[in-house]
Write a protein that binds this DNA or RNA. Structure first.
Lengths: 216, 216
DNA sequence: TAGATTGTTAATCGATTAACAATC
DNA sequence: TAGATTGTTAATCGATTAACAATC
């Protein structure tokens, strides 16, 4: 088995994409079936060589001539990515945003589970969303570390971004998916922020560029 | 001046990031000032060589020994990206989501302007959000083409994604920023979709990988 | 055995970084 | 002129693709 010094960021992302896909298949009862790199590639709009290369970082998970067993692959992906069923996350945003996100990104369909909701708006405190009581963002540092949460989804209003990131960091959460746009981010030491900048995405999608854009 | 055959996707994205940054500076009244590649790089967490290379795709916009004039650069970026002030966009999602997005991504702060709101929920029809009346998604094909909208922000519930993309395509909109997760996307011919997959981002952020992740 | 599919090594491609000449 | 900063060419780096041997 090959031994790698490092793994590309893009590969980690695709591994989690395979995890989502296989998870969905398994929930649909396809547990026992096999899947090949070709099928995965076709379904997810990737090249099959890329799929094989990606999965080879995990190592020893496929069978030549046969493919990958759904169950085994799912376990291996979970282990490699450090995931487990009902992976706990925290969500930060107004009650309105939290409720809207509940619809758009229903956590149980993806194997994650929100264990705390925080809003920046005082009047949201006490509102119940999906059996969880919304607390104020200033309570983030008192967040129970035993819940072992590593990742937060943040969609608060702009002025709260920096203090919220700081408080999350204090609470031991160092992975953040941030939906609120902000040009210049003040990222706490050691925090891994995946920033979705909607205005930039909109503007680059608009691009009626003078020069053709390179294929991806 | 160099002549390029194509421009990297990543460069287009960063150009729009510079556009956001300079736009913010100009609104703050820094119109007359100059900015250097070093300053841009420091502010936006990029390397200065990258900034210069990016801007060289536009061509003839900087002055050696001086830097880039905010006003000129903004104009050049707008022209190159095909943007203009109050760039029109469409937003699709429940009234709740649309209202929540209004707070998180206030369009006027970024030079874009929503010209139509569509919801997949019949009971949302007629609700007024920011002076715009929400219409039902099935009305998308009747969208007024004179408004010359090219880009949509979509955050509807999962079952509506495919029909909505199809209808947007019919309405002549071929750039979509999609916030709703879905493993397998059915993308209409010629449509450019930037898909934010929150579950995948969450999972890759969680990554307590066995192998170190490559630096970006 | 024949057919299928993985996993790895080598080749290619594309983007970023370094270096520096041009010039304000 | 001296100092600063751009813009371009060359070098590096990293990821993807191609090819194919291994093996189920």
């Amino acid at each position: 088995m090959a031994d790698f010094d490092y793994i590309p960021q893009a590969t980690v992302y695709r591994l989690s994409l395979y995890h989502c896909y296989i998870g969905e298949m398994i929930r649909a009862g396809e547990d026992e079936k096999n899947v090949t790199s070709r099928v995965l590639a076709d379904e997810l709009d990737i090249r099959e060589e890329t799929v094989r290369r990606d999965l080879s970082y995990i190592g020893g998970v496929g069978r030549r001539g046969v493919g990958y067993s759904m169950g085994t692959l799912f376990e291996a992906l979970s282990e490699f990515l450090g995931l487990y069923d009902e992976y706990p996350i925290v969500r930060v945003g107004s009650a309105q945003m939290l409720r809207a996100l509940e619809v758009v990104f229903p956590p149980d369909a993806y194997g994650v589970r929100p264990v705390a909701y925080f809003s920046e708006q005082p009047e949201d405190v006490g509102t119940v969303i999906g059996e969880l009581e919304v607390r104020h963002v200033t309570e983030i540092p008192q967040h129970d570390k035993d819940l072992d949460v590593r990742v937060a989804l943040v969609a608060c209003s702009q002025p709260w971004i920096d203090p919220v990131l700081e408080m999350l960091s204090e609470a031991g959460i160092n992975g953040v998916l941030l939906l609120t746009p902000k040009v210049k981010l003040d990222r706490p030491e050691g925090m891994n922020v995946r920033h979705v900048r909607m205005p930039c995405d909109i503007k680059s999608l608009a691009c009626g560029c003078k020069i053709p854009v390179a294929a991806v």
